[in-house]
Every structure is written in structure tokens, then in C-alpha cells.
Amino acid sequence: MYHFKKKLIGLLIGILCISSVNSQIDTLLVYSKTMQKNIPNLIITPDNSSGYKKPVLYLLHGANGNYTEWLKHVPALQEYAKKFDIIIVCPDGGITSWYFDSPIDTKMQYETYISKELIEAIDSKYKTITEKKGRAITGLSMGGHGALYLAFKHQDIWGATGSMSGGVDIRPFPNNWDISKRLGTYPKNKDAWEENTIINLVYLLDGNLKIIFDCGTNDFFYQVNKNLHKKLLERNIAHDYIERPGGHDWNYWSNAIKYQLTYFNDYFKK
């Protein structure tokens, strides 16, 4: 009897430990009519069975990455989804889409895909809060640019946004990361570059969008992030800006996401 009770207690403890850690992970294929292809997206949902609608964080990857990058490098996202009781959506944004609707490449229409096609798919399949008070978007590097870009242009969809080590001004990098393949070369397509860089979209803000962004002091995007912070201060646009030692790597981002999740959690609860 003693050994039976001991085994039973051990089994119950094991079950409790599994249920306390696990979140559900789905790969959702969404067909983009705009780009005429199926696009994979990784979805992390809390493992509780409550029926109420949950807020959603859209989490974007960087250049040369894909929809699996975040979970591969930060497996703690499963714990964070449960801790904050949110759904985390990691879309595939192409290797170097920059999350634009490219004016020169019809196969790169990721602004329309994420802000319309993906949103509709997520809201139809999962129990989500379908208003901007229940949506936030952030990302790293190219994804940091993408998150601010999409949120600045679609403030009716997202109520909060963030960026980690984001390319918040693309103009100093005319020959990098295939940006010229999306917008054309800077000398011949200056207007497209000027109209699609984050720092020039600040005029769209009216103070209602919640914003947090950060960058490591050893990052090649450090100066452009400082410039964005300065411009937001000049415009009296409320935001949280963090700079700390660090480079353009997963050591930095795995730490940064914890701060941003706390920020977004406060927003969702309000």
C-alpha cells in the first residue's frame, strides 16, 4: 500500500508539472489571395481550457529568419503565453520582405497579408479579442521595423506596438538586406524609401498608440533607434525607450522580449 501511494503521488506530481509548463503549439497555414500562396504561421496558445477571448501578440522575425525562429531561440515563449494568458502568433514574413507591400514585387505584399489576411484567419480560428485593445505587435531587427511600420499605418488594428533592435530608419542602409529589391534602388526610388521608413511615419501618430522599443548600445541599429526616440520626444509622443549593453543577437532579444511582454500585459489589462 505504501509503494502504491508513493507511485500515485509521483504520478500526480508529474501530471501537474506537465500541465503547468505546456502550451499548445500549432502551425497554421493561411492562404494569401494577394500573393497567391500558403504561408505558415506558428501559434502558441495557453494550455488552459477557459472559454473567454484572449489578447494576441503578433511577434515578427528578422531578416533571413522564418516563423519558427522565435520559439527555436526562446522556448520560454510557451511559459510566457501561459503566464500572461495570451495567444502568440509568429508569422512567416519571408526572408527579406521588410513587411512592406512592395511597389515593385507582387510576390512581396506582407503588409496586406499580416494586417488583413492573417488577422482575419486568426480571429476566425481562435477565441481572440477582435478589437485593437486586444492586439499588440512587436519584432526584432527587420521585424522591429515591420511591427512599428504596420502599427503606425494601421492604428485601427493594433493598440500597442514594439521593436527590439529594429531597423527603424532604412535609409542609411541602401545596399543591405535586399531592401532595394523591395523598394528599388534609393537613387532611382527616393520617394519610396522616404515614405516607407519608420522615422518618417511619426506624423501618423496621435498619441493613442502605445509604443515600446529598445536597442543594444553595441548594435548597428543603435543610432537610428536613438534618432527615433529623439524625434518622438520632439513631437511629444508618449513612448517607452530602453537602451542597454548588448548587440544584435539572441542573447539580447531573449532578454528584451520579457520587458516587452510585461509592457503589453499592462496594456491588455487596462
Rank of each mutant, 00 (worst) to 15 (best):
G94V: 02
L148H: 06
Y126F: 13
S115N: 02
Q109N: 10
D92R: 02
P103V: 08
F84T: 04
E120A: 13
E120Q: 15
G146Y: 05
L118W: 14
D123C: 15
L118V: 07
K125R: 15
W158D: 01
V89P: 08
E131P: 14
L150K: 06
G146N: 05
A151I: 06
Y149R: 03
K132C: 15
A121P: 13
K153N: 15
A147L: 06
E111K: 10
S115M: 09
Y149Q: 08
T161G: 08
L150R: 02
E120L: 13
Q155F: 11
S97P: 04
L118R: 08
I137G: 03
E131H: 15
Y126R: 08
S115F: 05
K116M: 10
A151Y: 01
S124M: 03
K107P: 01
W158Q: 02
K125H: 14
A147D: 08
D105L: 04
G146A: 09
K83H: 12
S141K: 00
Y80S: 10
I104F: 07
W98K: 04
I129E: 12
T96I: 02
E111C: 07
S97I: 03
K132H: 11
F100D: 08
K133T: 13
I114M: 12
I95G: 08
Y113I: 04
L140N: 11
A136G: 01
S124C: 15
T106A: 03
Y99D: 01
I114A: 09
K83Q: 13
H154G: 03
G144N: 08
G159V: 09
C90M: 15
K125A: 12
